[in-house]
Design a protein around this nucleic acid. Structure first.
Lengths: 194, 194
DNA sequence: TGGAGGCTACCGATCGATCGGTAGGCAAGT
DNA sequence: ACTTGCCTACCGATCGATCGGTAGCCTCCA
């Protein structure tokens, strides 16, 4: 279906598109801009993608798959809910840095997708939230959970993590390690008794 | 400068623009769409505004002024930092509902402004964050603050509040009162000792 | 061994539609 | 008479997308 070079080029297109859309938004990024950024013409670009909209869908879908692979899967073996939640937050924040903080900022752009595509992405986010909710419920069963609404709390936790991409600036002297630690501690302090 | 009816029409233009941009983003909202939404032609629309970009700036500026007027000002008389922070979160979340949750979602669109305009908005957000940081510092002086980084914590708190607009759906049975209470409790639990 | 056929990865040119914005006029209130 | 508020009619630029075409490589078969 594709040569190794073509495969690499294809990935470069999607990676560059994600980067540009983070900076300028979906509607604010033209296919001409993207073509120029990857050193192609618009026509050449369309060899790699079906449409601008489909490209956005694939970027978001790929990002969610990455989240599941790098956060959900690795913590499946952790039976203690507190430690599992700690590790989820840790891995998620580390993932943000590893992939340039980018993808979290693109999710609001799912409004530009077809309803059916929106539903797919929405469901993947919901599945991720369910993992957080499940850990919270287990904590509640152990009597270690504060008296909070599990659904609202799960969303709050996710917002503190995804929100990092919205305010973090490299030049402020905050290191990745520090931010990981702070985000874990903030959220765990919020939900644990004592 | 304007008749009362004209003033009202002017406000309707900006209010409608904000609403459309929340749904479709800045670049995704055309002036033709906006004109149709307020029952005007594009030319008539431009009687009320200078440019699309300037309109966005005024919307964001107005939103920040509202935040200062409805959250910062009312809590100035509260000397106890814990109670002040509680009230800030309470008022901010209530403000989200009162104004349709809209404006929080528009702030990422400040990337479409001129650098000088961006700076103005950025500074207003920073001033707001300073109010949260100040309350946290006072709490620390009283020995009631968890061992957390004040700057990071302030951002986390703001993200849980602004983040509500990104996940809240009316049809899930979560009431405004419940959400206010949950958001206050989550954040206070995160930052207070014990 | 060489040539035919097919495939990938692109290009220049161009499509109709839509973009943000404007010139100039007209009707109504003060 | 002048301003306010809006209109019709239009501008150049850019949008996403598609057209026919091609350079270069790989495979297969005589």
């Amino acid at each position: 279906m594709a040569t190794p070079e073509g495969q690499a080029r294809n990935e470069e297109v999607f990676r560059t598109a994600a980067s540009l859309m983070v900076q300028r938004g979906y509607a604010g990024t033209s296919m001409g801009d993207l073509a120029k950024a990857v050193g192609m013409t618009k026509a050449g670009l369309y060899h790699h993608i079906n449409s601008k909209q489909d490209m956005l869908f694939q970027i978001l879908h790929h990002a969610m798959e990455g989240l599941e692979r790098e956060v959900i899967e690795p913590v499946k073996g952790i039976s203690d809910p507190e430690e599992r939640l700690r590790e989820m937050i840790r891995l998620h924040v580390r993932g943000l840095f590893a992939h340039g903080l980018e993808f979290a900022l693109l999710f609001p752009e799912r409004r530009h997708l077809e309803p059916a595509q929106q539903k797919v992405i929405y469901q993947m986010v919901e599945d991720y939230l369910d993992q957080i909710r499940h850990a919270l419920r287990e904590l509640a069963d152990e009597g270690k959970f504060q008296d909070l609404d599990i659904n609202v709390t799960a969303s709050h936790i996710l917002q503190t993590i995804a929100g990092i991409a919205r305010w973090y600036k490299e030049d402020k002297g905050v290191t990745e390690d520090h931010l990981v630690e702070q985000t874990v501690n903030f959220n765990l302090s919020a939900i644990l008794k004592q």
